[in-house]
Design a protein around this nucleic acid. Sequence first.
DNA 1: CTCCCCACTCTTTTT
DNA 2: GAGTGGGGAG
Length: 751
Amino acid sequence: MGIYDTLNEQQREAVLHTEGPLLILAGAGSGKTRVLTHRIAYLIEEMGVNPWNILAITFTNKAAGEMRERVDNLVGIGSDSIWVSTFHSACVRILRRYIGLLGYDTNFTIYDSDDQKTLMRDVCRMLNVDTKMFKERMFLGAVSHAKEELITPQEFRLEAGGDFVKLKVADVYEEYEKQLRANNALDFDDLLVKTVQLFQTQADVLDHYQERFRYIMVDEYQDTNTVQFELVRILSSKYRNLCVVGDDDQSIYKFRGANIRNILNFEQFFEDARVIKLEQNYRSTGNILNAANAVIRHNAGRKDKTLWTANGDGGKLEFRQFDTAYDEAEYIVGDIAGSVKKEERTYNDHAILYRTNAQSRVFEEKFVTANIPYKIVGGVNFYARREIKDLLSYLKTVDNGKDDLAVRRIINVPKRGIGLTSVNRVQEYAASREISFYEALQAADLIPGIGRGLAKLESFTALIEHYKADAQEMSVSDLMKEIIEETGYIESLENEDAEEAEARIENIDELISKIAAYEEMCGDMDMPATLGGFLEEVALVADIDSLDENSDYVVLMTLHSAKGLEFPHVYLAGLEDGLFPSYMSITSDDLEDIEEERRLCYVGITRAEEELTLTCARRRMVRGETQYNRMSRFLKEIPVELVSTGETFAGEMEDAQKELQKELQKRNAYTQAKQAFQTKVYAAAKPAKQFGSPSGSSLDYEVGDRVRHVKFGEGTVTGIIEGGRDYEVTVDFDGPGTKKMFAAFAKLQKM
DNA sequence: CTCCCCACTCTTTTT
DNA sequence: GAGTGGGGAG
């Protein structure tokens, strides 16, 4: 014995329960990663499971990397044949092998959100959609949600009924899909959707992966959406060894389609599921934990649990209110500088968390002047920068000539005298022939009206062909260097704006070293370093993946990015009504929106190990204008006795602080009274709020009943599955055959 | 074809 | 406040 002795009772139970479905409700800081890694070790070493048969899914590459490292340390040999990966990269890996069966090339391109936006703009233009009236963003959101719910364009159209806007979305969705396919590209959602489709249609492929992944583990399960759920469900349906770990209180991705019902209803999906709660927190002090508990208690729809800790109370939470965001930043930066100077802490002991990326700017300024090393996670992704996208587009063009977006991006970058008129002519020609943009370019001499542009187009294709040939024998980094050299990309940047060019060139250097790092990694793993491989790697990285615990810098990031991390001293900045909780959530009629913000607050508080500082400002600049905000309602949910407002303030500041403390106290008494009242109300209302029955209503038909559908006519219900938000009903229609649909959409009528 | 200026929108969060 | 797109001049 040995490694399993260090676990507490619940943790050990979770580790030892290896067969059948298992839900681990792991509160913040309760050691869930420990459980997962030990469970993997246990499977291999004690149960004799082949590492090859284990799949562990995480949300970020960073989490995957950490888990892999920790498993490596626990298990001796064989750990590298365990699949530890994110949903997205697991899907890519599967699709690279089998997507041919769905009619795509295996060297498909992955479109990031920028590419999606560009494509959507094109689509709107093609369909003559007035983008003043309907925003591309709206379409992208609708399409993405449809994909998350596994609704095809055709189904979307059927379900739109006579709704004008929905029909418009259906048109756009359909064309968008068509264009993606034509470009041999998949967007983020497609990676999951296509994999599910592959499994649904190719029984042998599904069987292959079911046999391979006999033990499946999913981390951060509360943030899975419907496609991800379906993917996991279908993969695990043969051996049923599915272990999911999550915390419904930390579900913060509803806006991205995460379906909190996946975790709340797990026991209904998997009837024989074992449920284990991990409630002992090893991370934070008692005061921090009590604050977190006090806040989250205000949410209604949650699994009942209370975190406790054997750690001491620790210091009180610090709270400060400032006049401006500027003062707020100054205080925090000064506070960090002070504790580092006193050698109490290092820079990387501190993290500043905020609601919106825009808040990082003020801090950045202060850190630069204070000469303190810092790292901002998120914001503009490295790979979304213009110069990086340009150069990657060259690589993409070489790799997949069908990626029209990439080709069009670089055709005149650096400027080579190919203007919009020529591009449009080529585009029209390509569209009329149903060939790709690049293919049209290669036949440029056949394009009517191209005139003097011909020579320029031909020299462009010659250039690309030359790179394609080079790609066969050159390493990726050499190819990249050659492209930069020969196209004169750097000179063109310098001509444009010498000042900006400097930063951009630095980024280009970083890109080259990233390519080199990729090649090195491939070398270590005995894999060929391919162009496609690098592009794929790049498409799936999140900014958080680059966070390095060994570097000594202060970390700044949004609360969303902070999930899964922990720091000795955390600063929660901008705790103001209208900012956090966001204005959107306050004005929304959906009460759940505020609850999601509160969960976000809970996530923020529980990131702190020893110290937690809460700050807000009375006024701040938002979008160029000054906003006046009251302090966040979440602050008022924290018991006053846990909070100190500090005495280091002189004069008027001090008075203000005292006044505030009084208000805090008053508010607190009020909220407590209100909360006591609410608890009673919730208790009384609970039966009606059961999550077992989606949307609170049940169906008036059951299996075997005859029903009528608006489009499909009459049929017999052959199955009803309780899905996330809704029932999934299978109906055998007399005419069109068997269809699966969501009850809320389908509006079936019992006959 | 390119450059420059103006107006407009955006921001809540991201794999 | 910044980044983007559109329109107009050269």
